[in-house]
Amino acid sequence: MRSSRTLSWVMKKKAMSKIPSSEITPEHIYLSRRAFMRGVGALAAGSLLLGACAATEPTTDVPDDLQVSADTDELGDTLTSYAAITNYNNYYEFSTDKEAVARFARDFRTSPWEVAVGGLVRHPQTFDVSDLQRRFGSEERIYRLRCVEGWSMVIPWVGFPLAALLQEVEPEASAQYVRMETIYDPQQMPGQNNQWYNWPYIEGLRLDEAMHDLTLLATGIYGKALTPQNGAPVRLVVPWKYGFKSIKSIVRIDLVETMPTSLWMLAAPHEYGFYANVNPDVPHPRWSQSTERRIGESGRRPTLPFNGYAEQVAELYTGMDLKQFF
C-alpha cells in the first residue's frame, strides 16, 4: 500500500513540474519507434525460431551395398549406423559443426592423391593412393572410436596396418616418432581459413605405437571407400586413443627424431597431450572422460581404459605416469 501511495505522490509532483522537451516525442520519431518495435519483436521471435530450425537432415545417402562381417565388435557392442558415421564428423577443416561437415566436404577432390613418406627413412617414397590397396592389401577392422568430447561409435573400417607401409620405407635407427600431416587446401577446406587454429592439421605417434598392429591406415568403411567427411582418401585410426589422434586426409608421413607438436597440443596444451590415450582417470575440464555417450544410445556408459584395448596396448606404456603423460 505504501508504495502505491508513494507512486501517486511522485506522479502528482511530475504533473506539476514543467514537462521537459525530451518527453515530447516528435511524430517522425514516434512513427519510426513503432517500426523499430516491430523490428525488435521480429528479431526476438526470429532468433528463437532460427535456433529451433537448424537443419538436421542427413546429407549423405546410405549405399545399399554396404559390406560388413559382423553386427558387433569383440565386446558385443552394436555397430554404429553408416548414416550416423557419415553425418556426425569432427573435421574442423570443413566445419566446426559436426553435422554440417558432410555438406561442406561433398565436392572434396580425393583423386589424384599422393602420400609422401620421408624423413629418417632409408627409402623415401611417394605413394599414389590408388596403389595402396594393391601394395598393402586391405582388411576389415571393427574398432570403437572414442572422441575426447565424450561420445563414441563402433566403426567397421577397411584398411591396412601402418606398420606395413613403414616397413616398406625402412625407418632409420634414429627415428623415434612418426609425424603426419593433413592436406592444406583452404580453397576446398573453408575451415582452414579459421585463424584460431594453426593449419595444416598435424598429428604424431611414437614409433612403437605407429608399428603396433592395431594402428591402421584406413581407406574405407562398411566395405565402401571412405567418404570425404570421414577423412578420404586415407586416414589414420588409433583405436585406443582419443579420436583427434586419428588424423584424416593424410598427404605427408615423416619419421622424425623428436616428438611432433600436434595442432591440438598447440591450441590447448593443458587439455590435449601428445599421448591422448583414452583414460577415464584423467579428467577433462569440459567433457566427462569417465563416461561416454555411444551414438545411437540414450544415457551414458562407462569409458574403458585404453578404450577397451588395454590388453593389447597397455605394455607400450609400462613405467609411465599416464596422468602426467596424458
Binding site: A44, A45, L48, L49, G51, A52, C53, T56, A84, N87, Y88, K98, E99, W151, R293, I295
Partner: peptide, 22 residues
Amino acid sequence: TAVLVSLGWLGWQYGAHQLGVN
C-alpha cells in the same frame, strides 16, 4: 507465441528423432 511455438517445435523434434545424430 514465439517462445511457446519454438519450445513445442523443439519437443516435437526430439520426439520425432529430428535432432540429429546426438
